[in-house]
Design a protein around this nucleic acid. Structure first.
Lengths: 224, 224
DNA sequence: TATAGTTTGATAGTAATACTTTTATTTTTG
DNA sequence: CAAAAATAAAAGTATTACTATCAAACTATA
């Protein structure tokens, strides 16, 4: 995986950026350090001014890449879901059995990222944490319908639909495949968050993983 | 329900406010119109200045009730969960059968609020929408652990634990009662959101409700 | 290698946000 | 009715979230 993905570029809707950050070294530094800074101090207190100081660059230069920090968050999270999608397709396209395929998919979707792997300037471990803590904020906005129309969430949506299709492959009688697919993705992020901050509200801990919880859940629902 | 709850006061952790908004008419107007304003333009663009204009009062007066808008959101959402808890306890404590009790509970937790009922200055229908759109933002912060220790989320936590206990009552062999309980609450808000903004990611619509989805889910998981 | 084009940096500026402080006025209550 | 408490008005500060301008550096190609 490490090597296969090395030269792949996650394709992101070009409306989320003004200038493609992959196209220059400044752009890459913006991405690299925005991940570090958002993870460190949270999205609310993250500003382009602070990022500029951190990368020894000017605020105004960052504004040439992204309109605002919300768009940058959309970029980062789209990249994350695109990266997850690659992993998923790679790991499952050789699996013929629909059950096994779905099982592997749940594993990839719900596990926490353990190692920083393929892309030099992107720390996937930290990005995974950012997605857990901040992803909801990217769509819980008044602009969600406009931005959805612009295609800002298309990678995420494609991922949910992939899972839905796999659920149907296993059990085409199950009545709520879309809702179940979206529950797995959103719910996994939520269980990871609870594990870190509200231990009394989850059974997940360092022994039990969200993967086990959701695997059990899904295969008990669609075993028929 | 309308009349029974009329004189009940939802008890909220007194650290979220500086002065109890229930204690004065200005306080009540703050609550009433903050709900209208947040629902209207979203939490991000909501400010105490705008609220002051709307209620014909001064920004500085509002600051005497709440430290900042985050605390106000904590107040509103705590109130909402407290109100849901009352409904739940009222509606279920006469039910002896654990399955029926859980079923009723899922109904109350997952349904969308249809009518503005008991409290004169609080519009529960709009508050329900605010919770769907903004609740996550109240805990997805860098301060979550401190605020959790201060007890800002205790009503919500108590609610999740109530549901967990009911799940155990029905099936004490099920391995993930806490995770399932938290999935129901969070997942229901999420399905309502998807229904309004990402129809392709959910099976819920004007015919199928999140209540049906989660009732099916829960009772297929814990039917043993 | 000269030069035009592009990118970045530095500086300054604006409007809004998120408050705090002070003082005056109004309302409540004992 | 007086004292205390609550509210309003106004002004002030620091930060945010940008935009605009211009100069410097770097790069691409003729």
């Amino acid at each position: 995986m490490k090597y296969i993905l090395q030269d792949l570029k996650v394709r992101i809707n070009d409306k989320v950026y003004i200038k493609d950050p992959e196209s220059s070294s400044l752009g890459k530094r913006i991405i690299e350090h925005s991940i570090l800074l958002i993870q460190e101090s949270g999205f609310e207190s993250f500003t382009f001014k602070k990022l500029g100081v951190k990368i020894g660059s000017n605020e105004s230069s960052i504004y040439r890449y992204f309109e605002n920090k919300h768009k940058l968050l959309l970029y980062l999270t789209s990249w994350y879901w695109g990266w997850i999608e690659y992993q998923l397709v790679f790991a499952t396209n050789s699996i013929a059995d629909p059950k096994e395929k779905l099982k592997k998919t749940i594993e990839i979707i719900t596990q926490s990222t353990k190692e920083d792997s393929s892309f030099s300037h992107i720390n996937e471990v930290l990005l995974n944490k950012i997605v857990i803590n901040e992803y909801s904020k990217s769509y819980l906005t008044k602009e969600v319908d406009i931005e959805n129309k612009e295609g800002y969430f298309s990678i995420y949506k494609r991922l949910v639909i992939r899972i839905k299709d796999m659920i149907i492959e296993v059990d085409n009688k199950y009545q709520y495949p879309s809702s179940l697919a979206s529950t797995i993705i959103e719910g996994a992020l939520h269980q990871h968050f609870l594990k870190d901050h509200f231990q009394s509200l989850t059974d997940c801990n360092n022994k039990v993983t969200p993967t086990q919880y959701f695997t059990d859940l899904v295969f008990n629902l669609i075993k028929n």
